[in-house]
């Protein structure tokens, strides 16, 4: 079984991408053997009112009943925008989300802004996963209208210190992944999954040695990154580094546990 914890639909405004809809995503999943994908609508990165993007995704999911058994929706929530708590309740109670995605760099707030801390605590209390994406695109090839900043792994630590008992996805791990020993220990103790789409997970064997096999899961970052590199990082691991039991955790086992499915 294979679960992708980092898929997106919607439009990336600076470059034409394929695989933008639920239908296209499911077709791609079928080709590559992905059974389930965690998905959100990246239009919400650019809408001021992110709830419109969550509603778009929900409408699309309702358009074909088979989508509901292949795609696990996450909502994009902006905690400094009006009505976010109502939005989150709606997404949870009427749209069946399993988590939320936050984009502080795009929505222009600090990860430890009191409203963000409140949101993460609220998500924790509701049993939702909080997904943080270190970057959407490589800033070297960004559009002149796109943001310039990217996160390193250490940049997500402050919110994990504020709310250590929330569950986290850390996605598209690029850039510097070095942490202090104290932060490494915090990451190990946390209930966190890091996906394999980002370039800094190429040394996956070493990362497993540091954090444990239970901290990683297959992710694609589709449609921004190619669909298979994240899987290749898992499947090409030597038997010495990861046997089939560990690979099964990376393919789906860890994702199933944290998603509760």
């Amino acid at each position: 079984m294979l679960i992708d914890i980092n898929a997106n639909t919607g439009h990336w405004p600076f470059r034409q991408t394929s695989c933008n809809s639920c239908r296209q995503l499911v077709a791609r999943m079928d080709e590559s053997g992905t059974d389930l994908s965690v998905v959100s609508n990246m239009n919400g990165i650019f809408y001021k009112n992110t709830q419109a993007a969550n509603e778009e995704l929900n409408e699309e999911l309702k358009s074909d009943r088979s989508f509901n058994n292949r795609l696990i929706p996450f909502a994009i929530i902006n905690p400094v925008y009006a009505g976010w708590k109502d939005d989150l309740d709606t997404c949870l109670n009427k749209m069946g989300i399993k988590g939320i995605r936050l984009y502080p760099l795009y929505h222009d707030y600090d990860l430890t802004d009191p409203s963000c801390v409140e949101l993460v605590r609220y998500a924790r209390d509701k049993g939702l996963i909080v997904a943080l994406t270190l970057r959407m695109v490589d800033s070297r090839s960004r559009s002149w209208m796109d943001i310039t900043a990217e996160w390193n792994l250490r940049d997500v630590i402050p919110i994990m210190k504020e709310v250590p008992d929330a569950r986290y996805f850390i996605l598209n791990i690029a850039g510097d992944i070095r942490l202090s020993q104290a932060d490494t220990d915090l990451m190990i103790k946390s209930d966190t999954l890091m996906d394999t789409s980002g370039r800094s997970t190429s040394g996956l064997g070493n990362l497993i040695s540091t954090y444990g096999a239970g901290k990683f899961a297959f992710g694609t970052h589709t449609p921004i990154l190619d669909y298979l590199t994240g899987l290749l990082r898992i499947e090409s691991l030597s038997e010495r580094v990861a046997d089939e039991t560990i690979k099964d955790l990376l393919r789906a086992g860890n994702a199933r546990r944290i998603l509760g499915i």
Binding site: L2, E31, G33, T34, D35, R65, N68, N69, L231
Partner: peptide, 14 residues
């Protein structure tokens, strides 16, 4: 939602 049939397993899934 419900599922009409199990999704096909693709080439790289197992």
């Amino acid at each position: 939602g419900c599922l009409d049939s199990a999704p096909p397993a693709g080439p790289f899934s197992s």
